[in-house]
Design a protein around this nucleic acid. Sequence first.
DNA 1: ATATTTATTGATTGACGAGTCAATTAAAAG
DNA 2: CTTTTAATTGACTCGTCAATCAATAAATAT
Lengths: 201, 201
Amino acid sequence: MARANVSALRKSALIAATVDQIGKTGSLEVTVSQIARKAGVSSALAHHYFGSKEQLFLAAMRAVLSEFGNEVRAERSGLVAPRDRVDAIVRTCFSPTNFQPEVVAAWLNFYVLAQTSDQAHRLLRVYQRRLHSNLLAELRPLAGPDAVQVAQTVAALIDGFYIRQALRNESLDATASIGLVTGYLDAILCTTTHHREAQRA
Amino acid sequence: MARANVSALRKSALIAATVDQIGKTGSLEVTVSQIARKAGVSSALAHHYFGSKEQLFLAAMRAVLSEFGNEVRAERSGLVAPRDRVDAIVRTCFSPTNFQPEVVAAWLNFYVLAQTSDQAHRLLRVYQRRLHSNLLAELRPLAGPDAVQVAQTVAALIDGFYIRQALRNESLDATASIGLVTGYLDAILCTTTHHREAQRA
DNA sequence: ATATTTATTGATTGACGAGTCAATTAAAAG
DNA sequence: CTTTTAATTGACTCGTCAATCAATAAATAT
């Protein structure tokens, strides 16, 4: 059983340390040395593996994004009712791993990074599109012609609650956020919701 | 008619330049020299008047916040129906001045600044509280016991659309954003909305 | 064993930028 | 006028940090 690539270990340690450090300090103004120290290696090694600070940031972003994607897929699997699948997506957004203050703070900073880095911008777009089309697929049968707008609204809502979490708005935790998003959905899909309630009764 | 304080002129020029520069570059990593150059003065003068880069940033934030507050007040004045007043607030959020890409980008960066600066954090909180209580005052008669949640949702929605604007999501301009927020309100206040429609008919 | 590639670092470089300061100019006061 | 006070700057300091590099250690291959 050959011991796995050391390089892969180091890389992922550095990536994790990057997210963590950005999240903890709430800023992109973290030094490569800080990150490397947290990962238990020298800053030179970080440069060796990633080439530049920006590339390290991008790798960290990719990691967060793909982790999020995986969770969505996992949470949604098995569910077949469109509304349940939408709720699964929403729940995932506010799951303990994704809605951790550090991760949310990192997200916020990735948004900022996207303002200056084309690659970051592209990554974020990919994520947004994917979220949007995921939502849309489930909302089509629920909201018909309004589906696009509902999907846009849900996506914006989620980002809005993320910002609040980043600012540590005590009054809005994950549960409350989920409640407000589903509350919106209940209201906007009132016809369909009534159907659901009828079915349950 | 004594010519106004030179110092006030310089200060406001520097503040405007700060917002502009942060907005244009989409980052807090702007140099005092860049800002000063844009304002037509030396960087030493910026330090002379503001003491530090952070204080300059905070002054810029205060300016944006208070400009926003003034606009809200102006736009809302004269309207008496709660729903109209809510709509006025929403409209102001997406008014040409406030929803300019540069200003929105500056906002986003102020959110980031609030992660590392207590003063910035406090400023943002004041703004958030004020917006919330403004919304709440109007929503109480419209949504009764749900008013708090509706206000929180509206506030989050607005922030969500701001993020989208910061990312230059072509598909969502000011008009579309206003439409989606009011769409939400129409749906959530459906009882009241029906009353309104009935009144109009 | 030896050669070759990979992992790893300490030390260094070079740039950049916030903040200071002493000096200069302009305005205000007396 | 002269003196005091405010406005303004260029030049400088000092720290920080990304990125490089040469050197060493460890692993892999031959």
